[in-house]
Design a binder for these strands. Structure first.
Length: 187
DNA sequence: CGTATTTGACCTGCGC
DNA sequence: GCGCAGGTCAAATACG
C-alpha cells in the first residue's frame, strides 16, 4: 500500500476551495489559533471542484486508506453501492471533504463540537482512526481523524456531510470582521 | 450526576 | 461462502 501513490495529477486546480462547512475559525483566522499552532494544508492533488460535484475519482478504487494519500477517493468508493437500509446505508451518500493539518494535536479546533463514537486501527497505519460526530442535535455531520504514519506530524481530517447549523466560534470570529467590512463599505 | 470517552462486539461490504 | 477490513453501537468507565 505504501507504493500506491496517487497518479500524477493533471494540472491541479488553481486554488482549491474549501466548502463552506469547512470555514472554521482555526482555518480562517489565525487569531483564534491556540498553541500548538496548526498549519492548514490542502491535499495537493485534490480536485475540489469535482469532489464537490461528486465526480472525483472516476474508475475503480479499492479501499484505499488515508495512508495512501488518496483520501478523497473514498468518496467514490462509498458511492458505489450503499443504498441498502441499515447502519451503513447512508454511509458515503454525502459529500466528504478531507484536508491535512500539521499539528501535534489530533483534534483541531474547527469551531464545532464533536463527540467521539469510535476508534479503529486501520491497516497499514501505525495510528488508529478516530470517528467523531457533531453533537448538535439535528446535525449528522461526521469526521474521521487519522495521523499519517509516513509523517507523524500530519493529521488527516475527513469531514462527511454539511453542518445544518451555524458555528458559534466561527460567528464569534467573523462578527468583528463583518462589522468592519460593513463600516468600510460605507465609503 | 451529567456528559464525554473508551473499547470490544457487532454489522456490512467486498475480494477471493 | 468465507474471511478481512472499515464503520458503528453501546455498555463501561472517566472526568468535570
Amino acid at each position: 500500500m505504501e507504493d500506491q501513490e496517487a497518479p500524477p495529477p493533471p494540472p491541479p486546480p488553481p486554488l482549491p476551495q474549501l466548502p463552506p462547512s469547512l470555514f472554521s475559525p482555526s482555518l480562517l483566522a489565525s487569531s483564534s489559533l491556540q498553541p500548538p499552532f496548526i498549519e492548514p494544508q490542502v491535499l495537493p492533488d485534490i480536485d475540489w471542484v469535482s469532489l464537490l460535484s461528486c465526480q472525483y475519482g472516476e474508475g475503480e478504487n479499492k479501499a484505499k486508506t488515508l495512508e495512501s494519500a488518496s483520501v478523497i477517493s473514498e468518496e467514490e468508493k462509498g458511492n458505489k453501492d450503499r443504498r441498502k437500509c441499515g447502519r451503513m446505508m447512508k454511509k458515503h451518500s454525502r459529500p466528504r471533504f478531507a484536508f491535512q493539518t500539521r499539528s501535534a494535536d489530533d483534534i483541531l479546533d474547527d469551531g464545532y463540537r464533536w463527540r467521539k463514537y469510535g476508534q479503529k486501527a486501520v491497516k497499514n497505519s501505525a495510528y488508529p482512526r478516530s470517528y467523531y460526530r457533531c453533537t448538535y442535535p439535528t446535525c449528522n455531520v461526521k469526521k474521521q481523524v487519522q495521523r499519517l504514519s509516513k509523517d507523524t506530524s500530519i493529521v488527516v481530517t475527513t469531514y462527511e456531510g454539511i453542518h445544518n447549523h451555524p458555528c458559534e466560534k466561527l460567528m464569534e470570529t467573523l462578527t468583528p470582521l463583518l462589522k468592519q467590512m460593513q463600516f468600510l463599505a460605507r465609503f
